[in-house]
Design a protein around this nucleic acid. Sequence first.
DNA 1: CCATGATCGAACCGATCGGTACGATCACGC
DNA 2: GCGTGATCGTACCGATCGGTTCGATCATGG
Lengths: 192, 192
Amino acid sequence: MPVAKGSTVDPARTRAAILGAATRVFYERGLDGVGVAELCGVIGVSKETLYRHFATKDALVDAVLELRSERVTRWLSDAAESAGPDPAARLAAVFDALRQWYSEPTFRGCALVNAAAQHHAPRVRAITSRHLDKHLALLTDIARRAACPAPVAVGRQLLMLLEGATIVADQHGADAVGDHARTAALALLTRS
Amino acid sequence: MPVAKGSTVDPARTRAAILGAATRVFYERGLDGVGVAELCGVIGVSKETLYRHFATKDALVDAVLELRSERVTRWLSDAAESAGPDPAARLAAVFDALRQWYSEPTFRGCALVNAAAQHHAPRVRAITSRHLDKHLALLTDIARRAACPAPVAVGRQLLMLLEGATIVADQHGADAVGDHARTAALALLTRS
DNA sequence: CCATGATCGAACCGATCGGTACGATCACGC
DNA sequence: GCGTGATCGTACCGATCGGTTCGATCATGG
Protein backbone atom coordinates (compact mmCIF):
# COMPACT_ATOMS: atom_id res chain seq x y z
CA MET A 1 0.00 0.00 0.00
CA PRO A 2 1.45 3.37 -0.97
CA VAL A 3 2.06 5.52 2.06
CA ALA A 4 2.72 9.21 2.55
CA LYS A 5 5.99 10.50 1.19
CA GLY A 6 7.94 13.11 3.06
CA SER A 7 5.34 13.94 5.67
CA THR A 8 4.69 13.26 9.30
CA VAL A 9 1.26 11.67 9.12
CA ASP A 10 -0.68 9.91 6.44
CA PRO A 11 -2.85 12.48 4.66
CA ALA A 12 -5.36 9.79 3.73
CA ARG A 13 -5.75 8.98 7.41
CA THR A 14 -6.35 12.63 8.23
CA ARG A 15 -8.93 12.85 5.50
CA ALA A 16 -10.69 9.78 6.83
CA ALA A 17 -10.71 11.23 10.34
CA ILE A 18 -12.26 14.44 9.06
CA LEU A 19 -14.88 12.52 7.12
CA GLY A 20 -15.74 10.30 10.06
CA ALA A 21 -16.09 13.08 12.59
CA ALA A 22 -17.95 15.32 10.16
CA THR A 23 -20.36 12.50 9.40
CA ARG A 24 -21.17 12.15 13.06
CA VAL A 25 -21.43 15.86 13.89
CA PHE A 26 -23.41 16.77 10.78
CA TYR A 27 -25.84 13.97 11.55
CA GLU A 28 -26.31 15.02 15.16
CA ARG A 29 -26.55 18.76 14.64
CA GLY A 30 -27.51 19.32 11.04
CA LEU A 31 -25.44 20.52 8.10
CA ASP A 32 -25.96 24.19 8.88
CA GLY A 33 -26.07 23.64 12.62
CA VAL A 34 -22.31 23.42 12.99
CA GLY A 35 -19.75 25.81 11.57
CA VAL A 36 -16.41 24.95 10.11
CA ALA A 37 -14.55 26.36 13.10
CA GLU A 38 -16.48 24.32 15.62
CA LEU A 39 -16.26 21.29 13.39
CA CYS A 40 -12.49 21.62 13.31
CA GLY A 41 -12.47 21.85 17.10
CA VAL A 42 -14.42 18.63 17.42
CA ILE A 43 -12.22 16.83 14.90
CA GLY A 44 -9.05 18.19 16.47
CA VAL A 45 -7.78 19.63 13.25
CA SER A 46 -6.99 23.12 12.04
CA LYS A 47 -9.01 24.88 9.40
CA GLU A 48 -6.06 24.90 7.04
CA THR A 49 -5.83 21.14 7.23
CA LEU A 50 -9.52 20.71 6.62
CA TYR A 51 -9.41 23.02 3.63
CA ARG A 52 -6.41 21.18 2.26
CA HIS A 53 -8.51 18.02 2.04
CA PHE A 54 -11.82 19.57 1.02
CA ALA A 55 -12.03 22.62 -1.18
CA THR A 56 -15.14 23.95 0.51
CA LYS A 57 -17.66 23.10 3.18
CA ASP A 58 -20.10 22.06 0.50
CA ALA A 59 -17.53 19.66 -0.92
CA LEU A 60 -17.09 18.16 2.54
CA VAL A 61 -20.86 17.84 2.86
CA ASP A 62 -21.03 16.07 -0.48
CA ALA A 63 -18.29 13.64 0.52
CA VAL A 64 -19.97 12.96 3.86
CA LEU A 65 -23.31 12.29 2.23
CA GLU A 66 -21.84 10.03 -0.44
CA LEU A 67 -19.98 8.02 2.19
CA ARG A 68 -23.08 7.77 4.33
CA SER A 69 -25.17 6.61 1.40
CA GLU A 70 -22.69 3.92 0.51
CA ARG A 71 -22.50 2.66 4.09
CA VAL A 72 -26.26 2.55 4.62
CA THR A 73 -26.88 0.89 1.27
CA ARG A 74 -24.26 -1.73 1.93
CA TRP A 75 -25.60 -2.29 5.41
CA LEU A 76 -29.12 -2.95 4.16
CA SER A 77 -28.06 -5.14 1.24
CA ASP A 78 -25.82 -7.14 3.58
CA ALA A 79 -28.82 -7.68 5.83
CA ALA A 80 -30.83 -8.93 2.87
CA GLU A 81 -27.99 -11.11 1.65
CA SER A 82 -27.46 -12.77 5.00
CA ALA A 83 -31.12 -13.81 5.08
CA GLY A 84 -30.79 -16.29 2.28
CA PRO A 85 -32.76 -16.60 -0.95
CA ASP A 86 -36.33 -16.44 0.38
CA PRO A 87 -37.70 -13.00 -0.56
CA ALA A 88 -39.92 -12.69 2.52
CA ALA A 89 -36.97 -13.51 4.73
CA ARG A 90 -34.86 -10.95 2.91
CA LEU A 91 -37.47 -8.29 3.38
CA ALA A 92 -37.92 -9.20 7.03
CA ALA A 93 -34.17 -8.96 7.51
CA VAL A 94 -34.09 -5.49 5.97
CA PHE A 95 -36.82 -4.22 8.25
CA ASP A 96 -35.24 -5.96 11.23
CA ALA A 97 -32.09 -4.03 10.51
CA LEU A 98 -34.11 -0.84 10.31
CA ARG A 99 -35.82 -1.62 13.61
CA GLN A 100 -32.45 -2.01 15.25
CA TRP A 101 -31.29 1.27 13.75
CA TYR A 102 -34.36 3.09 15.02
CA SER A 103 -33.67 2.10 18.61
CA GLU A 104 -30.09 3.29 18.62
CA PRO A 105 -29.77 6.34 20.87
CA THR A 106 -28.02 8.32 18.15
CA PHE A 107 -30.79 7.72 15.61
CA ARG A 108 -31.90 10.98 14.03
CA GLY A 109 -33.68 9.86 10.89
CA CYS A 110 -32.10 9.32 7.50
CA ALA A 111 -29.09 11.59 7.10
CA LEU A 112 -29.67 11.87 3.36
CA VAL A 113 -33.33 12.79 3.59
CA ASN A 114 -32.56 15.25 6.38
CA ALA A 115 -29.85 16.81 4.26
CA ALA A 116 -32.17 17.18 1.29
CA ALA A 117 -34.71 18.91 3.53
CA GLN A 118 -32.05 21.37 4.68
CA HIS A 119 -29.93 22.10 1.62
CA HIS A 120 -32.25 22.67 -1.29
CA ALA A 121 -29.12 22.73 -3.42
CA PRO A 122 -29.55 20.44 -6.42
CA ARG A 123 -26.30 18.58 -5.68
CA VAL A 124 -27.49 17.44 -2.29
CA ARG A 125 -30.89 16.52 -3.65
CA ALA A 126 -29.23 14.50 -6.41
CA ILE A 127 -27.22 12.51 -3.89
CA THR A 128 -30.35 11.82 -1.87
CA SER A 129 -32.27 10.86 -4.98
CA ARG A 130 -29.61 8.35 -5.94
CA HIS A 131 -29.69 7.07 -2.37
CA LEU A 132 -33.39 6.33 -2.67
CA ASP A 133 -32.74 4.76 -6.06
CA LYS A 134 -30.45 2.22 -4.40
CA HIS A 135 -33.06 1.39 -1.80
CA LEU A 136 -35.66 1.08 -4.53
CA ALA A 137 -33.45 -1.31 -6.46
CA LEU A 138 -32.97 -3.52 -3.41
CA LEU A 139 -36.68 -3.61 -2.61
CA THR A 140 -37.74 -4.09 -6.22
CA ASP A 141 -35.35 -7.02 -6.45
CA ILE A 142 -37.03 -8.60 -3.44
CA ALA A 143 -40.45 -8.05 -5.01
CA ARG A 144 -39.23 -9.60 -8.23
CA ARG A 145 -37.88 -12.63 -6.37
CA ALA A 146 -41.28 -12.97 -4.73
CA ALA A 147 -42.84 -13.18 -8.19
CA CYS A 148 -44.97 -10.13 -7.56
CA PRO A 149 -47.07 -9.32 -10.64
CA ALA A 150 -45.88 -5.69 -10.49
CA PRO A 151 -42.49 -5.74 -8.77
CA VAL A 152 -41.71 -2.12 -9.58
CA ALA A 153 -44.94 -0.92 -7.98
CA VAL A 154 -44.39 -3.10 -4.91
CA GLY A 155 -40.81 -1.90 -4.67
CA ARG A 156 -42.05 1.68 -4.64
CA GLN A 157 -44.59 0.85 -1.97
CA LEU A 158 -41.93 -0.77 0.17
CA LEU A 159 -39.68 2.23 -0.35
CA MET A 160 -42.43 4.54 0.88
CA LEU A 161 -42.89 2.33 3.89
CA LEU A 162 -39.17 2.32 4.62
CA GLU A 163 -38.81 6.08 4.39
CA GLY A 164 -42.04 6.72 6.25
CA ALA A 165 -41.05 4.38 9.04
CA THR A 166 -37.77 6.25 9.38
CA ILE A 167 -39.60 9.56 9.65
CA VAL A 168 -42.16 8.29 12.13
CA ALA A 169 -39.51 6.55 14.22
CA ASP A 170 -37.57 9.80 14.41
CA GLN A 171 -40.53 12.01 15.27
CA HIS A 172 -42.71 9.64 17.28
CA GLY A 173 -40.14 7.45 18.96
CA ALA A 174 -39.02 4.02 17.87
CA ASP A 175 -41.30 2.08 20.22
CA ALA A 176 -43.28 -0.21 17.96
CA VAL A 177 -42.61 1.53 14.67
CA GLY A 178 -40.07 -1.04 13.54
CA ASP A 179 -42.45 -3.91 14.22
CA HIS A 180 -45.37 -2.25 12.49
CA ALA A 181 -43.26 -1.39 9.48
CA ARG A 182 -42.01 -4.94 9.22
CA THR A 183 -45.52 -6.33 9.44
CA ALA A 184 -46.80 -3.91 6.83
CA ALA A 185 -43.89 -4.62 4.51
CA LEU A 186 -44.51 -8.36 4.58
CA ALA A 187 -48.22 -7.77 4.02
CA LEU A 188 -47.49 -5.63 0.98
CA LEU A 189 -45.07 -8.22 -0.38
CA THR A 190 -47.37 -11.21 -0.05
CA ARG A 191 -50.76 -9.64 -0.78
CA SER A 192 -53.04 -10.17 -3.74
CA MET B 1 -66.22 42.70 14.61
CA PRO B 2 -63.71 44.91 16.42
CA VAL B 3 -61.52 46.77 14.01
CA ALA B 4 -58.27 48.66 14.39
CA LYS B 5 -58.51 51.82 16.43
CA GLY B 6 -56.53 54.89 15.54
CA SER B 7 -54.43 53.37 12.84
CA THR B 8 -54.26 53.40 9.06
CA VAL B 9 -54.47 49.70 8.35
CA ASP B 10 -55.73 46.73 10.25
CA PRO B 11 -52.81 45.22 12.17
CA ALA B 12 -54.46 41.81 12.08
CA ARG B 13 -54.49 42.02 8.31
CA THR B 14 -50.82 42.92 8.25
CA ARG B 15 -50.05 40.01 10.52
CA ALA B 16 -51.99 37.67 8.27
CA ALA B 17 -50.13 38.95 5.23
CA ILE B 18 -46.80 38.34 6.94
CA LEU B 19 -47.86 34.85 7.95
CA GLY B 20 -49.09 34.01 4.49
CA ALA B 21 -46.03 35.21 2.63
CA ALA B 22 -43.66 33.71 5.19
CA THR B 23 -45.44 30.37 4.89
CA ARG B 24 -44.88 30.37 1.17
CA VAL B 25 -41.27 31.59 1.18
CA PHE B 26 -40.17 29.36 4.05
CA TYR B 27 -41.68 26.38 2.29
CA GLU B 28 -39.97 27.15 -1.01
CA ARG B 29 -36.55 28.08 0.31
CA GLY B 30 -36.27 26.56 3.76
CA LEU B 31 -36.39 28.15 7.19
CA ASP B 32 -32.73 29.11 7.19
CA GLY B 33 -32.61 29.69 3.47
CA VAL B 34 -34.19 33.11 3.65
CA GLY B 35 -33.16 35.93 5.96
CA VAL B 36 -35.46 38.37 7.70
CA ALA B 37 -34.41 41.24 5.44
CA GLU B 38 -35.15 39.34 2.25
CA LEU B 39 -38.35 38.00 3.72
CA CYS B 40 -39.50 41.53 4.45
CA GLY B 41 -38.71 42.50 0.89
CA VAL B 42 -40.86 39.69 -0.47
CA ILE B 43 -43.71 40.51 1.88
CA GLY B 44 -43.46 44.22 1.18
CA VAL B 45 -43.10 45.12 4.81
CA SER B 46 -40.41 46.76 6.90
CA LYS B 47 -38.41 44.91 9.52
CA GLU B 48 -39.86 47.06 12.24
CA THR B 49 -43.38 46.05 11.26
CA LEU B 50 -42.49 42.41 11.16
CA TYR B 51 -40.87 42.58 14.58
CA ARG B 52 -43.92 44.39 15.95
CA HIS B 53 -46.04 41.36 15.10
CA PHE B 54 -43.54 38.64 15.91
CA ALA B 55 -41.02 38.96 18.70
CA THR B 56 -38.37 36.98 16.88
CA LYS B 57 -37.78 35.00 13.73
CA ASP B 58 -38.22 31.80 15.68
CA ALA B 59 -41.61 32.99 16.89
CA LEU B 60 -42.59 33.68 13.29
CA VAL B 61 -41.40 30.23 12.32
CA ASP B 62 -43.48 28.69 15.08
CA ALA B 63 -46.59 30.58 13.98
CA VAL B 64 -46.04 29.61 10.36
CA LEU B 65 -45.65 25.95 11.23
CA GLU B 66 -48.69 25.92 13.50
CA LEU B 67 -50.79 27.54 10.82
CA ARG B 68 -49.53 25.13 8.21
CA SER B 69 -50.25 22.17 10.42
CA GLU B 70 -53.81 23.30 11.02
CA ARG B 71 -54.43 23.89 7.33
CA VAL B 72 -53.04 20.55 6.19
CA THR B 73 -54.84 18.66 8.91
CA ARG B 74 -58.14 20.32 8.10
CA TRP B 75 -57.58 19.71 4.41
CA LEU B 76 -57.05 15.98 4.89
CA SER B 77 -59.92 15.54 7.34
CA ASP B 78 -62.22 17.45 4.99
CA ALA B 79 -61.22 15.07 2.22
CA ALA B 80 -62.08 12.11 4.45
CA GLU B 81 -65.33 13.70 5.57
CA SER B 82 -66.51 14.41 2.05
CA ALA B 83 -66.06 10.74 1.14
CA GLY B 84 -68.92 9.56 3.31
CA PRO B 85 -68.94 6.90 6.00
CA ASP B 86 -67.25 4.00 4.20
CA PRO B 87 -63.75 3.68 5.67
CA ALA B 88 -62.13 2.48 2.45
CA ALA B 89 -63.65 5.41 0.60
CA ARG B 90 -62.40 7.79 3.29
CA LEU B 91 -58.88 6.39 3.05
CA ALA B 92 -58.97 6.53 -0.72
CA ALA B 93 -60.10 10.15 -0.54
CA VAL B 94 -57.20 11.02 1.77
CA PHE B 95 -54.66 9.49 -0.57
CA ASP B 96 -56.38 11.04 -3.58
CA ALA B 97 -55.90 14.40 -1.93
CA LEU B 98 -52.26 13.57 -1.33
CA ARG B 99 -51.80 12.54 -4.93
CA GLN B 100 -53.20 15.86 -6.05
CA TRP B 101 -50.86 17.66 -3.67
CA TYR B 102 -47.83 15.77 -4.97
CA SER B 103 -48.45 16.91 -8.52
CA GLU B 104 -48.71 20.58 -7.68
CA PRO B 105 -45.67 22.41 -9.07
CA THR B 106 -44.97 24.04 -5.72
CA PHE B 107 -44.88 20.72 -3.87
CA ARG B 108 -41.73 20.44 -1.77
CA GLY B 109 -42.60 17.71 0.70
CA CYS B 110 -44.20 18.17 4.08
CA ALA B 111 -43.31 21.57 5.47
CA LEU B 112 -43.46 20.28 9.02
CA VAL B 113 -41.19 17.31 8.43
CA ASN B 114 -38.79 19.48 6.47
CA ALA B 115 -38.73 22.01 9.29
CA ALA B 116 -37.99 19.32 11.85
CA ALA B 117 -35.11 18.11 9.71
CA GLN B 118 -33.67 21.63 9.62
CA HIS B 119 -34.30 23.12 13.05
CA HIS B 120 -33.36 20.51 15.61
CA ALA B 121 -34.83 22.88 18.19
CA PRO B 122 -37.24 21.01 20.45
CA ARG B 123 -40.04 23.52 19.81
CA VAL B 124 -40.09 22.82 16.10
CA ARG B 125 -39.86 19.11 16.65
CA ALA B 126 -42.77 19.29 19.08
CA ILE B 127 -44.95 21.04 16.52
CA THR B 128 -44.07 18.41 13.93
CA SER B 129 -44.71 15.62 16.38
CA ARG B 130 -48.17 16.98 17.14
CA HIS B 131 -48.72 17.32 13.40
CA LEU B 132 -48.05 13.62 12.94
CA ASP B 133 -50.29 12.91 15.91
CA LYS B 134 -53.20 14.52 14.11
CA HIS B 135 -52.56 12.47 10.98
CA LEU B 136 -52.29 9.35 13.12
CA ALA B 137 -55.62 10.12 14.75
CA LEU B 138 -57.30 10.52 11.38
CA LEU B 139 -55.88 7.28 10.01
CA THR B 140 -56.51 5.32 13.20
CA ASP B 141 -60.10 6.46 13.10
CA ILE B 142 -60.44 5.11 9.59
CA ALA B 143 -58.90 1.81 10.67
CA ARG B 144 -61.29 1.66 13.59
CA ARG B 145 -64.27 2.31 11.33
CA ALA B 146 -63.04 -0.54 9.13
CA ALA B 147 -63.18 -2.85 12.15
CA CYS B 148 -59.49 -3.62 11.92
CA PRO B 149 -58.46 -5.97 14.73
CA ALA B 150 -55.58 -3.65 15.63
CA PRO B 151 -56.61 -0.16 14.48
CA VAL B 152 -53.73 1.59 16.25
CA ALA B 153 -51.18 -0.59 14.49
CA VAL B 154 -52.89 -0.10 11.12
CA GLY B 155 -53.10 3.63 11.75
CA ARG B 156 -49.36 3.70 12.34
CA GLN B 157 -48.73 1.73 9.17
CA LEU B 158 -50.87 4.11 7.17
CA LEU B 159 -49.06 7.05 8.73
CA MET B 160 -45.72 5.60 7.66
CA LEU B 161 -47.09 5.14 4.17
CA LEU B 162 -48.37 8.70 4.06
CA GLU B 163 -45.11 10.24 5.22
CA GLY B 164 -43.02 7.94 3.07
CA ALA B 165 -45.08 8.71 0.01
CA THR B 166 -44.56 12.41 0.66
CA ILE B 167 -40.81 11.91 0.87
CA VAL B 168 -40.61 9.74 -2.21
CA ALA B 169 -42.86 12.05 -4.21
CA ASP B 170 -40.60 14.95 -3.32
CA GLN B 171 -37.34 13.19 -4.12
CA HIS B 172 -38.36 10.90 -6.95
CA GLY B 173 -41.06 12.90 -8.64
CA ALA B 174 -44.79 12.52 -8.23
CA ASP B 175 -45.32 10.34 -11.28
CA ALA B 176 -47.02 7.22 -9.98
CA VAL B 177 -46.18 7.65 -6.32
CA GLY B 178 -49.68 8.82 -5.42
CA ASP B 179 -51.30 5.86 -7.12
CA HIS B 180 -48.95 3.34 -5.56
CA ALA B 181 -49.44 4.86 -2.12
CA ARG B 182 -53.21 4.74 -2.51
CA THR B 183 -53.11 1.12 -3.59
CA ALA B 184 -50.83 0.14 -0.72
CA ALA B 185 -52.95 2.03 1.80
CA LEU B 186 -56.12 0.23 0.75
CA ALA B 187 -54.28 -3.07 0.84
CA LEU B 188 -53.09 -2.41 4.39
CA LEU B 189 -56.57 -1.39 5.46
CA THR B 190 -58.40 -4.39 4.04
CA ARG B 191 -55.86 -7.14 4.54
CA SER B 192 -56.16 -10.17 6.82
C1' DC C 1 21.39 17.58 8.21
C1' DC C 2 18.56 19.83 5.59
C1' DA C 3 14.60 20.47 2.52
C1' DT C 4 9.80 18.95 2.29
C1' DG C 5 5.28 18.92 3.41
C1' DA C 6 1.57 18.19 6.64
C1' DT C 7 -0.06 20.32 10.47
C1' DC C 8 -1.22 23.81 14.07
C1' DG C 9 -3.06 28.06 16.14
C1' DA C 10 -4.45 32.37 15.67
C1' DA C 11 -5.28 36.42 13.31
C1' DC C 12 -7.73 38.20 9.70
C1' DC C 13 -11.27 39.20 5.83
C1' DG C 14 -15.70 40.34 3.75
C1' DA C 15 -20.36 38.98 3.86
C1' DT C 16 -24.48 37.95 6.03
C1' DC C 17 -27.27 37.22 9.86
C1' DG C 18 -31.00 38.54 13.48
C1' DG C 19 -32.40 42.43 15.70
C1' DT C 20 -32.66 47.63 17.05
C1' DA C 21 -33.09 52.65 16.51
C1' DC C 22 -34.51 56.78 14.25
C1' DG C 23 -36.83 60.16 11.50
C1' DA C 24 -40.45 60.62 8.15
C1' DT C 25 -45.23 59.42 6.36
C1' DC C 26 -49.91 59.02 6.46
C1' DA C 27 -54.57 57.92 7.64
C1' DC C 28 -57.82 57.81 10.97
C1' DG C 29 -60.63 59.23 15.58
C1' DC C 30 -61.44 62.80 18.65
C1' DG D 1 -56.60 70.01 12.82
C1' DC D 2 -54.17 67.50 15.84
C1' DG D 3 -52.51 63.58 18.25
C1' DT D 4 -52.07 58.61 17.80
C1' DG D 5 -50.25 54.67 16.04
C1' DA D 6 -48.99 51.68 12.29
C1' DT D 7 -45.86 51.76 8.81
C1' DC D 8 -41.67 52.70 5.93
C1' DG D 9 -36.73 53.03 4.63
C1' DT D 10 -32.36 53.09 6.11
C1' DA D 11 -28.65 52.98 8.85
C1' DC D 12 -26.60 50.59 12.32
C1' DC D 13 -24.99 46.93 15.82
C1' DG D 14 -22.63 42.75 17.41
C1' DA D 15 -22.12 38.09 16.28
C1' DT D 16 -21.15 34.43 13.35
C1' DC D 17 -20.13 32.46 9.09
C1' DG D 18 -17.04 30.42 5.29
C1' DG D 19 -12.63 30.93 3.84
C1' DT D 20 -7.55 32.77 3.61
C1' DT D 21 -3.06 33.77 5.26
C1' DC D 22 1.05 33.48 7.98
C1' DG D 23 4.65 32.03 11.07
C1' DA D 24 6.01 28.13 13.78
C1' DT D 25 6.51 23.15 14.60
C1' DC D 26 7.96 18.66 13.59
C1' DA D 27 8.80 14.14 11.59
C1' DT D 28 10.54 12.09 7.84
C1' DG D 29 13.21 10.96 3.25
C1' DG D 30 17.13 12.04 0.54
